[in-house]
């Protein structure tokens, strides 16, 4: 029994060492992501105080033993609020990325599969949406829908649709060239069934891009909340914490640092996880889907860039077999 356990332990350590040596980026990313997701999930248990406990006598206290990251202008514990804020970010990002992923995959694969006028019309529309700067599109959508967190999810999700649709389209076109798709068509499978059974499973690499989108969604949510268009105080969000901290920066610089640091590590985690996963399941290495025109490891959603896309999935470039 104990020998078994020890064997398992050794194996686990060996696996960890292997993973660390081969996929360092992936491991660091995964650790950061797990940390952020865990603080979102177990915020109630992890946070030493309630994020809403006002204590004016203790306001703007610098970091100390009782409040590791100090207190804010209402005497609330900054650490607890930062941990709870992960909730909003993860919730918004999950919903937004799902909206973008599902919407984009449907539009992109349908466009590629049926081709012709439908393809041109759908992709034209996507290009159009793509020509708006994301934050601007989000702001306009928020103005239309009303400023609350639910609408922020929808707005960010809509922003992701064009990016995912172009990827899904390129990936579907790659798969469509395979002989087994022709075979499925020849034996009389219905269009829907071919799409669902033969094509969709092969564009699972979209998941990699979803990680980058996740990182970008966290930034967008924080930006909207920072501008007062997302999560409403007193509900903590990294963006609105930084915003309210602005007024107290010379007395309480930690208000401008701590939530930002949490946000930075969250974004970095999702970016690295995406980069790491890409290295592991690179579709160009494994299936030659995307073609040689891709300029290296370019993340599609990382940082301020939902945009590298223009080079990646450009319908006019060499990877498009349809024209």
């Amino acid at each position: 029994m104990s020998a078994n356990l020890a064997g398992g332990g050794i194996r686990a350590v060996a696996f960890a060492a292997f993973a660390w040596r081969r996929h360092r980026v992936l491991v660091i990313g995964a650790v950061l992501v797990v940390a952020v997701v865990a603080s979102a999930t177990f915020a109630g248990r992890l946070a030493p105080y309630s994020p809403y406990d006002v204590n004016i006598a203790d306001k703007l206290r610098p970091p100390n033993a009782a409040h590791w990251f100090g207190t804010d202008e209402y005497g609330r514990d900054v650490l607890s609020r930062t941990i709870h804020a992960a909730r909003i970010s993860i919730k918004v990002a999950t919903v937004a990325v799902s909206v973008g992923l599902v919407g984009g995959t449907v539009i992109g694969s349908v466009a590629a599969y049926f081709g012709g006028a439908l393809d041109v019309a759908l992709m034209r529309l996507m290009e159009l949406l793509f020509s708006f700067p994301a934050i601007l599109l989000a702001i306009v959508l928020m103005a239309v829908l009303g400023t609350n967190i639910l609408n922020a999810m929808a707005a960010i999700g809509i922003i992701f649709i064009p990016g995912f649709s172009r990827l899904a389209r390129a990936a579907t076109q790659g798969v469509m060239r395979q002989q087994y798709v022709e075979a499925a068509y020849a034996i009389g499978m219905s269009d829907l069934r071919i799409l669902g059974r033969a094509v969709l499973p092969h564009i699972a690499t979209l998941i990699v891009e979803a990680m980058q989108a996740f990182a970008y969604a966290v930034i967008l949510e924080s930006s909207l909340s920072f501008l007062g268009l997302g999560a409403h105080p007193p509900e903590p969000s990294w963006g609105n914490m930084l915003n309210s901290g602005r007024g107290f920066m010379d007395q309480a610089p930690w208000l401008g640092v701590v939530p930002g640091l949490a946000m930075f590590f969250g974004v970095l985690g999702f970016n690295l996880l995406g980069d790491g996963l890409r290295d592991v399941l690179d579709p160009r290495m494994r299936r030659g889907l995307a073609g040689p025109t891709m300029p290296g490891n370019v993340p599609i959603f990382s940082g301020s860039a939902l945009t590298a896309e223009k080079t990646l999935g450009d319908p006019g470039s060499a990877e498009s077999p349809a024209r």
């Binding site: 930084l242 920066m249 610089p253 930075f264 974004v267 301020s304 860039a305």
Partner: peptide
């Protein structure tokens, strides 16, 4: 590049103000 890509611009702005202005 990885680090710079993960810094939201409004936080960088906050840090710059904190350091270079205040």
């Amino acid at each position: 590049a990885t680090v710079m890509g993960a810094v939201p611009n409004f936080w960088l702005a906050t840090l710059l103000i904190l350091t270079f202005a205040l």
